[in-house]
């Protein structure tokens, strides 16, 4: 059943109000005209019920609403972390975007973003089926530091700290959005370079740092053009070029 944008937004509003807020229902009184139409549609498909001028989610509607919220917040993440959309436009764009994230597509986006746990406004993103699978394929765009492989580079996208003491530590290390970061080792601890400094941290801390990846291909291409590269990597590449010309 395809829902219209307005209907989805209303579901979202009720879900946030009842599941995350303290209310147990949404009053009809405050609704605008177009939202009243959406109410009709939702009542028809048995996603919500109306009692005494208050709207509640039905058992059938709750997972649908949860999924709308998830898509909206994933869309916000995608817009901020990957497309660099500014704060002002964020909510509006995300509202449009969420409707494009059909079933299945939200899982791909979630994987691309490294299964984020919070939206840019620090609200929790309801986890989807893909988040439970630890063995999911390596993330492509944004990933927690703990899931990068050595030599992958990127910029810190955001921090998801579980405690304020953890956030303090990360801030003290200069780990803030926008900082260049690259993983040096992933075992037995996580060693990474940020700016001019190297740090070693455990998995708990590495899981809190979300990195927007820089494609490794583009890096090696720029290195390729350098005439006097040193180091094993460059020597290997020069050898490779020589070998391919020879044969």
């Amino acid at each position: 059943m395809e829902l219209e944008e307005k209907a989805e937004e209303l579901l979202e509003t009720i879900w946030i109000c009842t599941e995350e807020g303290t209310e147990d229902s949404l009053a009809v009184v405050g609704l605008r005209e177009e939202e009243k139409e959406a109410t009709e549609q939702l009542l028809k498909v048995d996603y919500i019920m109306a009692t005494d001028g208050h709207l509640r989610l039905t058992k059938r509607g709750r997972p649908v609403a949860r999924n709308v919220v998830r898509r909206h917040r994933l869309a916000e993440r995608l817009l901020t972390d990957v497309l660099g959309t500014s704060d002002m436009l964020l909510h509006e764009k995300a509202c449009k975007f969420e409707h494009l994230l059909d079933r299945g597509l939200d899982e791909s986006i979630c994987s691309l973003l490294g299964h984020p746990k919070i939206c840019p406004h620090s609200k929790p993103i309801p986890p989807g089926g893909c988040c439970q699978q630890e063995r999911a394929p390596a993330p492509k765009l944004v990933s927690p530091l703990s899931r990068l492989s050595p030599r992958q580079k990127g910029k810190v996208a955001y921090i998801y700290a579980t405690e304020s003491s953890q956030l303090q530590k990360l801030m003290a290390m200069g780990i803030l959005p926008g900082a260049s970061i690259s993983l040096i080792r992933g075992f037995p601890s996580y060693v990474f370079q940020i700016g001019q400094t190297q740090f070693a941290v455990d998995k708990e801390i590495a899981k809190a740092i979300y990195v927007r990846l820089v494609e490794p291909e583009t890096i090696s291409e720029t290195q390729e053009e350098l005439p006097h590269g040193r180091g094993r990597g460059c020597r290997l590449r020069r050898f490779g070029r020589w070998w391919s010309k020879r044969s």
Binding site: Q166, K169, M173, S189, V191, T197, Q198, F199, A200, V201, D202, E204, I205
Partner: peptide
């Protein structure tokens, strides 16, 4: 315990 340490050159 949580672990973080600067690795100086």
């Amino acid at each position: 315990a949580s672990f973080y340490i600067e690795v100086p050159p």
